[in-house]
């Protein structure tokens, strides 16, 4: 009887765990929690838990974890231990699934400290970039649009494709005409909204602080960026914020760029806004700092994926 009861509790623990993981994947909530490279892994885990739970429930114990009277596990024979497992593993997960708002509040974002330097972020992902031109919800700059001139991290091994060729076998950066040609051809890769604005992410602007090719590409362009509104020192400036995840939301850190407006704006703290304007690059010691000069600040819906990566 005790073994049977323990088996029920342990089986439910595994099945419940698998159910939560699969449900998060199917309904898309997992997108707010994990980097894409871990999402299929999470689904596989969910399926694995369900398979293990089903086998645990319906099959007879075929191997014993006890040798000469000494047992590695106590949970197969102890209903109390089984209840404890259910209470510690699955119940909190189900409670979290019901109660979580799938986001951090302002206090958590401020507490984590802003990433000020793009060199602290992983290099932009070429594969991800390649899909950006067709998907405006993705971080925006395709690598085809860029040269390999990470001017402030020259020692970094480049993951960028070769510089565009000018047709004579020389790289575009080797002469002025080639440079112009490169800039023109690069601009066509920039993803654009229906009104012609260049659609960027906060991370793109942050990267542009350390990548001259991006600065050249963005200068003079009207861009639009979506993020959360964080008030600044006065009503005519604020920061537009996104959370950047390395692996999961637990390691997410906020990235932001300052925005200057022509007049005061009335936006609720941490609400989602679309900022339309032009980026300006200012020298800041050895580095370059980007400031977005906003022409419009509009309330907007959260993007499908609130996290950048």
């Amino acid at each position: 009887m005790r073994t049977w009861a323990a088996k029920i509790f342990n089986g439910i623990t595994l099945l419940g765990l698998g159910g939560v993981l699969i449900a998060f994947f199917i309904n898309g909530r997992i997108d707010q929690y994990l980097h894409p490279q871990f999402r299929l892994w999470e689904l596989a885990g969910g399926i694995g838990f369900c398979v293990a739970g089903a086998i645990y429930l319906v099959t007879k114990k075929s191997m014993d974890c006890c040798v000469d009277g000494q047992c590695i596990h106590s949970n197969p024979r102890s209903p109390v231990r089984g209840m404890l497992a259910l209470g510690v593993i699955t119940v909190p997960l189900v409670a979290g699934a019901v109660l979580s708002k799938d986001s951090y509040d302002q206090q958590a974002i401020l507490n984590r400290g802003f990433v000020q330097d793009a060199r602290a972020l992983p290099l932009r992902n070429v594969a991800k970039d390649a899909t950006a031109a067709t998907n405006p919800n993705q971080p925006a700059i395709p690598s085809e649009a860029l040269g390999g001139d990470k001017d402030e991290s020259a020692s970094a091994p480049s993951i960028e494709p070769p510089l565009p060729q000018d047709g004579s076998g020389n790289t575009a950066s080797q002469d002025t005409a080639g440079q112009d040609s490169k800039d023109d051809s690069s601009a066509q890769y920039l993803p654009r909204a229906e009104d012609g604005n260049v659609v960027l992410e906060v991370s793109d602007l942050l990267y542009s602080q350390s990548e001259e090719s991006l600065r050249k590409l963005f200068t003079g362009k009207t861009i639009e960026v979506i993020g959360q509104y964080l008030p600044g020192a006065d009503k005519s400036q604020f920061r537009i914020v996104r959370m950047f995840i390395w692996c999961c939301a637990a390691d997410a850190r906020p990235i932001s760029v300052p925005v200057k407006t022509q007049g005061p704006v009335q936006i609720a703290d941490m609400s989602w806004v679309k900022v339309i304007g032009q980026p300006e690059f200012e020298p800041n010691g050895d580095h370059t700092k980007v400031v977005l000069k906003a022409a419009q600040v509009l309330p907007t819906d959260p993007p499908a994926e609130a996290m950048l990566y």
Binding site: L17, L21, F24, I30, Y33, L34, F38, W41, E42, A44, G45, G48, F49, A52, P92, L93, A95, G96, A97, L99, S100, K101, D102, S103, Y104, D105, Q107, A108, N111, C247, C248, A249, A250, A252
Partner: peptide, 24 residues
């Protein structure tokens, strides 16, 4: 120290989703 259930659940679930498959 400023506890918020919203922040706790978000971080807790993320750790669980990332880590539990590894444990499995």
């Amino acid at each position: 120290f400023h506890f918020s259930w919203q922040n706790f659940w978000f971080s807790f679930l993320a750790l669980a989703f990332e880590g539990l498959p590894f444990v499995l």
